[in-house]
């Protein structure tokens, strides 16, 4: 009646259902959590150049550049079902060409156990801030926001836009000198 086959079969089935139950509990206990937090962003230097974009069609496009400060306490966001936070700084603006432009200029991965208290001074962008044309010079309304994508052990993947954004304008003249 209880052959080795039936025993191992029962054991395997039981293991799988326990694992499935635990995974589901992990998901349900954190599914309705609010992952918002406050951030403080500030620009130190802002300038715009008009240079050929060799990563695209080699046309002269506007390229923004800024040095910025960033402050955020993301420690409360972590719980047992948060494996990692992917945080990204987005520049959002409008141009005559496009009603919406979103460019990620900096990002960072914070895994569980790593320092989630951010206090960065004078960071440079990680990615080039190319516009889709020439819409950055004299642009009066560029918004920087910090957002994060919560990566769970198992569960859904919310993208959260934090409260606390920073608005700035680009200068009316292109910068031509090297920094």
């Amino acid at each position: 009646m209880h052959s080795a086959f039936t025993r191992s079969h029962a054991l395997a089935a039981y293991t799988v259902s326990v694992l499935a139950g635990l995974t589901f509990a992990c998901f349900v206990t954190t599914a309705f959590r609010d992952y918002n937090a406050d951030t403080t962003i500030n620009t130190v230097t802002v300038l715009v150049r008009n240079v050929p974009d060799y990563s695209a069609l080699r046309e002269k496009n506007d390229m923004g550049f800024m040095i910025f400060d960033l402050k955020a306490d993301l420690r409360p966001l972590f719980n047992w079902n948060v494996k990692q936070l992917f945080i990204y700084l987005t520049a959002e603006y409008e141009t005559p060409n496009n009603k919406l432009n979103q460019v990620v200029i900096w990002d960072k991965i914070i895994q569980r156990g790593e320092n989630a208290l951010l206090d960065h001074k004078n960071i440079r962008p990680k990615y080039y801030f190319w516009d889709d044309g020439n819409g950055l010079r004299g642009n009066k309304n560029v918004t920087l926001t910090l957002s994060w994508n919560v990566i769970p052990n198992a569960g859904h993947l919310p993208n959260v836009v934090s409260t606390g954004s920073h608005q700035f304008s680009f200068p009316d003249e292109y910068t031509t000198t090297k920094m």
Binding site: N97, N98, K99, L100, N101, V104, W130, D132
Partner: peptide, 21 residues
């Protein structure tokens, strides 16, 4: 992969660039 840049025109057409983390 993850969306890194996005441009949306007035008529709703959208183009975007992706990158792997």
């Amino acid at each position: 992969h993850r969306v890194l840049k996005l441009h949306e025109r007035d008529n709703g057409t959208v183009k975007f660039l992706t990158k792997g983390d």
